[in-house]
């Protein structure tokens, strides 16, 4: 592999492009593959199978060949509503787990640059904030304010847009009340099963960092369950 390919990989990742690096294991020649683009002669006869591996978000050697594919897809987007203490720990854990974090909080004194120096923060109400974020079925939502005015509209948006993971902070009682409000708003009970409430896997911890750990663990587990 040439240094140029390594530099291109770093550049493409920083530009949030999705691509694969393909290597001929016989001679060590590498090339960058972008979906829909032509490859050089050495790789072109494998292009369909390279694209298939890329689409499955997998790495590996193409069957009956010596062509290795390393896929680079964008990280899973995790939208956190509430710039609270737990969010600070969540960001810390997410750094090494290939999650991209976006924080929404209309309360400026919470969502300050001082508290969240390297994070994308949208200082707006969720409905306005979602206009600025591209979301799909590979997006996750974590609501942490337990203020219905802020959390509920975000939960409604995530339910309608079929996010792969939805988690809401709050006790069982808080969650029951939340569910009744969402049913009043027109959601069906079966749809509400998608919400992990109380949020996180059971660790027994109570501190913000322990709650963040239980949330991030549930996110990792749901990522693999949903094959994302």
């Amino acid at each position: 592999m040439k240094l140029e390919i390594i530099r291109e990989t770093l550049k493409n990742k920083s530009l949030k492009k999705e691509f694969a690096v393909i290597t001929n294991l016989i001679n060590g020649e590498s090339e960058i593959f972008f979906p829909g683009c032509d490859l050089s002669e050495m790789f072109s006869k494998y292009s369909e199978r390279i694209e298939k591996t890329f689409n499955l978000n997998k790495n590996g050697i193409i069957e009956n060949s010596e062509i290795f594919v390393q896929t680079y897809k964008n990280p899973i987007k995790v939208i956190i509503v509430g710039a609270v203490d737990i969010s600070i720990y969540l960001i810390d854990y997410a750094k090494n787990l290939n999650f991209e974090i976006i924080i929404i909080d209309p309360r400026g004194y919470f969502a300050s640059k001082e508290r969240f120096p390297d994070t994308k923060i949208i200082n707006k109400w969720p409905i306005e904030a979602f206009n600025e974020i591209e979301t799909n079925s590979k997006t996750a939502l974590v609501t942490l304010t337990h203020d219905p005015k802020i959390d509920d509209p975000a939960l409604q948006y995530a339910l309608k847009n079929k996010f792969f993971y939805i988690g809401a902070l709050g006790s069982k009682k808080t969650h029951e009340k939340r569910c009744s409000r969402l049913i009043e708003a027109g959601f069906k009970e079966i749809e509400l099963e998608k919400i992990n409430g109380p949020i996180g896997i059971k660790l027994g911890g109570k501190s913000p960092s322990e709650i963040a750990l239980s949330i991030i663990s549930q996110l990792v587990s749901e990522k693999y369950k949903n094959k994302i």
């Binding site: 680079y72 750094k95 090494n96 787990l97 290939n98 994070t119």
Partner: peptide, 8 residues
């Protein structure tokens, strides 16, 4: 900011 595994 999230890091992809090979960044470092």
């Amino acid at each position: 900011m999230s890091n992809f595994p090979e960044k470092k």
